[in-house]
Design a protein around this nucleic acid. Structure first.
Lengths: 213, 213
DNA sequence: ATAAATTTTGTACAGCGTACATTGTGCATC
DNA sequence: GATGCACAATGTACGCTGTACAAAATTTAT
């Protein structure tokens, strides 16, 4: 190879994105911000990545991996494997709401996305689903994880707001609503809690996997 | 009231957004684009709306209404009411992918959002769920609808691409994947179809509403 | 008729992603 | 060991975004 040595590579760039997210989890990183953190001019990144979308895709792939897709092929019973990965991916996303838009701004067709899909298919096959229903169920699980993460990210309180306080205000607002909303305000206010996420994904799995006839 | 007459109001502005979406469903409307269509300078909109987020919220409210929340309190059996509204909201979103980000860039706490929530709670109450479980189930349904719409919007083919062609390419790509993915490629390629959406939401409801013990 | 209130505009700014020509660097070749 | 080429990084720039702020225009109340 001729020419000057490369000062960066895609993993380094992805890492810079994660650093920005670690410092300010709710802010969507920008190309220029990433470049600045790497001590480089913005257009330098175009040597390693064709455009912003590709960078986002790389970050998505990294996060899918960070959530540990290995658990999907682990020794645990199939349901636990699914819920475990779902919970971990959700946790990674909620820890970095600024990364959530990356998952929703382009197709998820990278290697790790395929790997996760395959893992889900395996789990659902083990549960007794046909390949077709397995595919539908796997997709439904992805929808549930990304959907609830996206809704949670959309509802972020301003920085430096007490979560407890937010919960109370949310509950009060719901309690002032129509009758059923008001009656369920206590539960409804905690829609973005781990408990309710777990409840939802388990009900989804229940519906996908018919219990004994 | 003193001062010159207002030339606009929020509904007119929302309407302009919908017109832009009708002409170019996949492109997210911008403040400046909306202003241009109304024959007005960009900053004029700030007389009617505090910022972009508020405009987005107004559009969300309009679309929630456009999907016809009345069906939720209609005479049909509870399950049909839920799936009917879900299908209609999904249809409105898929017809305007450019509006999907609006649903995910701020809290959904407008009157119509509350109304939809109340309708879902009523349906699930009729199904025999406790208020708490009803709230969890209603939230899960919202997650499913918005999540699948968001994923579908993220996967939009370039403008002027034949959907049939896209399906074939997607299927081929999946067929080249790992074993289970490959085996399910036919079904998996159609993940954003109405049929699979219906399947998913019905399975979700199945899981939420315990059948006879 | 004048004054006050309020809408609309003009102008501007900082930030975004990205294109293009230029400069600089380092290996392969002579 | 000098030379030239291939490539990386930069400088500069464009069009776009949302949004301030002060000036102008318009309508009503006095």
């Amino acid at each position: 190879m001729k020419g000057p040595k490369r000062s960066l590579d895609v993993p380094k760039i992805v890492n810079a994105v994660l650093e920005l997210l670690a410092e300010d989890p709710a802010t969507v990183p920008t190309l220029r911000g990433v470049a600045a953190r790497l001590g480089v001019r913005p257009n330098t990144l175009y040597t390693y990545v064709p455009d912003r979308a590709a960078l986002e895709g790389a970050v998505v792939e990294h996060l899918l991996d960070l959530a540990g897709p290995a658990v999907l092929s682990g020794p645990a019973p199939w349901r636990e494997r699914i819920t475990a990965y779902a919970l971990r991916l959700r946790a990674e996303l909620l820890a970095r709401p600024g990364a959530v838009p990356f998952f929703l701004s382009g197709p998820m067709n990278g290697p790790n996305a395929v790997l996760v899909g395959e893992g889900l298919l395996a789990a659902f096959a083990e549960a007794g689903l046909s390949p077709g229903d397995g595919a539908r169920a796997a997709y439904a699980v992805i929808v549930h994880v990304l959907g609830s993460a996206a809704l949670a990210a959309a509802d972020l309180p301003g920085p430096g707001t007490d979560p407890e306080q937010v919960l109370l205000e949310r509950r009060a607002a719901l309690a002032a609503g129509p009758p059923l909303t008001s009656a369920a305000s206590e539960v409804a206010a905690g829609w973005n809690s781990v408990e309710q996420f777990t409840w939802g994904i388990n009900r989804l799995i229940d519906g996908c996997v018919p219990s004994l006839p």
